[in-house]
Amino acid sequence: MMMNNIEEERGRLRTSCSVELKGFSQATPAQTFQEMADWAQSNDVTHDVYGEGAFIQHFEEKVAKLLGKQSAVFMPSGVMAQLIAVNIWCERKRLQRFGVHASSHLLLHEKQSYQALMQLHGVTVGHRLRPIVEEDLSAVAEPLGCLAVELPARELGGQLPEWEELEALKKSAAQSGTPLHMDGARLWETKAYYQRSYAEIADGFSSVYVSAYKGLGGIAGALLAGDTDFIQQARLWLRRLGGNLVSQTPMVVSTAMRFDKQLAILEACYQRTLSLAACLQTIPGIRILPRTPQVNMFHAYFDADIPALLNARDNIARQHGYWLFNNLEGTEVPGWCKTEFYIGDSLLQMSDVQILDLFSELMGQVNKGN
């Protein structure tokens, strides 16, 4: 009961802060729904019926073209989209196993859905602390129905393979006849690093999943893109799994109305991330992974105990009205903990001097307590 009271108090403290460093500014439900209503009216939006309708199909075509694919389908969730994609490739190859990184969402956060629902076997590919590269695929001793590759890898601090490494992986997969499926939940944020079009990045992947809300601000949802026959089969599985909702208009509108604006701001968010990371690394007791961020995300490691760091964060929130980070988790190194930084528009107006002062004060309070 005491723990619940503390968390409730911290929730109220977070809400009271004028600035939250992580992520994009978030409107209230009422503000979001009003914006959706205004946008839908000005764009003559009509409801889709079980995925059929001019509005949803136009948006699917827009995303497919951006990714350089023939077709795309909007789905309620990324979990469903990825499960469908992996199952289709394994079914076509008549192999019940697929390759996946140890940090993949499919392994860590989906309650073994690929096993429970599709009776598939996930083969871990590559080193757990870096992205999959060509040598990892070559080292697999058995054929795979497909290989799922996450760009960027969230659990690795948003790491990406270098462009030459990615191209080598694509070439190796093509030579071995292994379909590549991209977990592109945050694909939109890779363009700033690669300086390539989304179609170039997705080229060589037989299917691509992208989130409809991560980085875009939609309510929920995902899109799965690929060749026309693949998407036709994906729509069949969408129906089988109960994802072919009577209408997905609210989710599509919430994504479509912000789509172009959010994509346009991601370059600025990445540049702000580079500056922020460089700033934080000047403070004793803080380290960044990767040392040079590759997207507008990184992991910050603190030489401090979790309770002391949370108390210091709360003090700064009360005194200055800035919420520095959310959750902390322990690391394999005793005495260290980490958190994820995801850089959105909330940090574009803050200077490095402000950041430096806040985190210097944070570590100063922790060290004073020790």
Results as ranks from 00 to 15, higher is better:
M80Y: 04
M80W: 03
A81F: 02
A81E: 02
Q82E: 12
L83T: 12
L83Q: 13
L83G: 14
I84A: 02
I84L: 02
I84W: 00
N87E: 14
W89F: 15
W89K: 09
R94M: 09
R97K: 14
R97Q: 15
G99C: 06
V100E: 05
V100K: 06
H101T: 01
S104P: 09
L106K: 05
L108V: 11
H109L: 15
E110L: 14
E110Y: 13
K111P: 08
S113Y: 13
A116T: 13
L117E: 10
L117C: 09
L117I: 13
L117Y: 12
M118A: 14
M118N: 12
M118F: 12
Q119W: 10
L120H: 09
L120A: 08
H121D: 15
G122I: 04
G122R: 07
V123A: 02
V123Y: 04
T124A: 10
T124G: 05
T124I: 15
G126M: 01
H127I: 09
L129K: 13
L129P: 04
R130C: 00
P131V: 07
I132L: 00
I132S: 00
V133Y: 03
E135Q: 15
D136C: 01
D136N: 00
S138W: 05
S138L: 12
A139P: 05
A139K: 07
A141Y: 08
E142N: 03
E142W: 06
P143F: 10
P143D: 10
P143C: 06
C146K: 01
L147D: 06
L147N: 03
A148C: 14
A148V: 15
A148H: 11
V149L: 00
P152F: 05
P152K: 04
P152C: 07
R154L: 14
R154T: 12
E155I: 04
E155K: 11
L156M: 13
L156E: 01
G158S: 07
G158V: 07
Q159E: 14
E164R: 08
E164Y: 01
L166E: 00
L166A: 01
E167N: 12
E167W: 04
L169C: 03
L169F: 05
K170I: 02
K171L: 11
A174M: 09
S176H: 12
T178Y: 07
P179H: 01
H181R: 04
M182W: 01
M182L: 13
D183W: 01
G184E: 03
G184D: 04
A185W: 08
A185R: 08
R186M: 12
R186Q: 11
L187P: 03
W188M: 11
T190V: 13
T190C: 15
T190F: 01
T190P: 01
A192P: 03
